[in-house]
Design a protein around this nucleic acid. Structure first.
Lengths: 350, 350
DNA sequence: AGCGAAAATTGAACCGATACAAGGATGGTG
DNA sequence: CACCATCCTTGTATCGGTTCAATTTTCGCT
């Protein structure tokens, strides 16, 4: 393909200066109608598509788009219910500002670093599902404003919006314990990259991902408050896939003393559990109570609707987007309150 | 904020030419280690974040990102199950190419035109839910490769991937008719912008959106094949919101002769119908059969699982993305086959 | 030490636009 | 008719890089 037409070609063809040609496209009212028409005619003639944003961008500096970054594959944004809920609220804020969204992710870390370095955006929102620290590191090098959607385990100089993981989990745990459950199991997220299955106390201590650890500690704190030995509650790591959750459930419900309550560290895991139990005619909440974490919309319409600790998802996404688009100055950290939503998946043990 | 550091500043500080400084960042192996270190030191000293992609972009020409455009608000990408399924497959193709995704949309048409004009991408995938023609018009002006996810109603010179709407709908209709249903109702998508509720034959003829019309004609053709007067089947326009679907259902099931089968023009509508019917203890498929359209993943796990005409969603997204990223030459049009998936939401009338 | 090949560096052109100060045309006024 | 105020237009600098031909340095070898 031969060289594309550019503004200066059009200007030359129309016999005007490049500056005037530029104005004809961007501020048509300040160029004399007759001249403007000549320029438009020339543009049409040459097949000029209008000023190329690549050029404008360089001059203008501002992109008017925000990058949302995750370490997972791109599909995560459209498949994971929590991610979707956050993205929806980010979207709304962007719609208001008339800004765009660029999705940034990558298969491997090297690619990710490059993608972050080369994303054409005004700032980043970091989806720190796990491994947040590394993501922050990578993004910091870019020296653009960014904000992490996770508060804990990140140093104080970093803007972040999140929740108090420990006490949120404790809230969930208290709800279950207050109902009278004494045999509970914890379905956790990853503590260490790529690891799934049952985990010991020692492994929790050694956890790479502080979010998961803090939530476990929160659950356990609630047990202790109710006089239960936290060590008796089995913990299973899952990675958000059905397979990992189902393996954990198979083990739990294959034992001679299955739990009467499941503390799930995400609604996604909770929903998978609900499906698994229903398929096996294990009644929820009759035989076993299930509580999730996150407060995604899908939990409202599940069968039965899922009790959960709802994060202020809408507020988190909106605030994060507003901060980036509004041009942050200082690092800003915010801890938002969660909300226990009791639905039909929890009840006193039968 | 004072002027940002740029490559030439670093070069000057390190006492090398700008070209060498550039190489130090992009092809470190070709600059002498000792010089490279000096440059890196200078960069560190000055707080240089590495070459700004905005600059590189202009020179390189290629963005390595694809824009996905819709006329709906941005949230559509994360909420609508069909959109999500397509986005997931586009995502996979992008992951393979290491490309990014930019979401383009806008509240009003003027904004949309601007966003399309100024999107920094190598090409577009157009989500023509409805009003596809207008979207194509806007995008064509940009003179970048683009491909529409809808075949019909678009002129032959435009690249597109889609299905045969008429015969796909006829397939759905035949399934229902073959089961023995004679009282059916059609839950259509929009025929005309912003219009919902019951529609007459005349209105179908006058429809702005050809996709909806062709599918209606397909349903009706199936009825005729089975000796049913197509005019007896009521048609309701919906706009994908629960409210519009529920209003239609209320009217249908409030009448003295409710339908025994619902031909839904999207799975989303079908799933909403399923919820509504379940809430009212109307048995599916005992009292009424429901068939959807699209083949989204949610239909597999609904209660009951939804019979549907599945579009080859994965193939559509992948092919579209590959075409854009692979550098299309000629316009390319492809009609993909659909697949009737019979699940538990359809049966012979009771 | 001298020579030629290979490796490293330079400098300027270029990517495609926008901004802005300065210059020219137009028109109204005394 | 001179003069000043408006309104357009022009030319050039700039945004922040990459590229490439030309030049200089380095290095191995006789």
């Amino acid at each position: 393909m031969k060289r594309a037409i550019k503004l200066s070609d059009v200007a030359k063809a129309a016999g005007v200066s490049q500056g005037t040609a530029s104005n004809a496209f961007n501020r048509p009212e300040i160029v004399r109608p007759e001249v403007r028409e000549r320029i438009e005619a020339a543009a049409r003639e040459l097949g000029y598509a209008g000023p190329d944003p690549k050029g404008r961008l360089l001059r203008a500096g501002k992109v008017n788009a925000i990058g949302v970054v995750t370490t997972s594959p791109l599909g995560y944004f459209f498949e994971d219910p929590y991610a979707r809920a956050i993205m929806t609220s980010i979207s709304e804020a962007c719609d208001v500002h008339g800004a765009g969204i660029s999705l940034v992710s990558a298969a491997n870390e090297e690619k990710l670093a490059w993608n972050i370095q080369s994303a054409i955006v005004d700032g980043f929102i970091l989806f720190c599902i796990e491994g947040g620290a590394r993501l922050v590191e990578l993004t910091r090098e870019r020296r653009l404003p960014f904000i992490a959607l996770q508060l804990e385990g990140l140093d104080e100089t970093i803007s972040a919006i999140g929740i108090d993981e420990f006490s949120s989990a404790r809230t969930a745990g208290r709800h279950i314990m207050a109902l009278g459950h004494r045999d509970v199991a914890i379905l956790a997220l990853e503590l260490t990259e790529g690891h799934i299955g049952p985990v010991s106390e020692t492994e929790v201590d050694a956890a790479l991902y502080s979010t998961t650890r803090n939530r476990i500690r929160g659950y356990q704190a609630a047990m202790v408050e109710f006089g239960v030995d936290a060590a008796t509650a089995p913990i299973f790591e899952t990675d958000h896939t059905s397979a990992s959750v189902e393996a954990a459930l198979a083990e739990l419900f294959g034992s001679d003393r299955p739990p009467t309550a499941l503390l799930c560290m995400s609604d996604r895991v909770g929903l998978i559990a609900l499906d698994w139990l229903r398929a096996r005619k294990i009644s929820v909440p009759g035989d076993v109570s299930v509580i999730g974490f996150d407060g995604v919309p899908d939990g409202e319409i599940s069968n039965p609707p899922l009790t959960t600790v709802a994060q202020p998802i809408a507020a988190m996404g909106r605030q994060a987007a507003d901060m980036i688009l509004g041009g942050m100055n200082e690092p800003h950290r915010e801890q938002l309150p969660v909300d226990l939503i009791v639905r039909a998946s929890t009840a006193a043990p039968g």
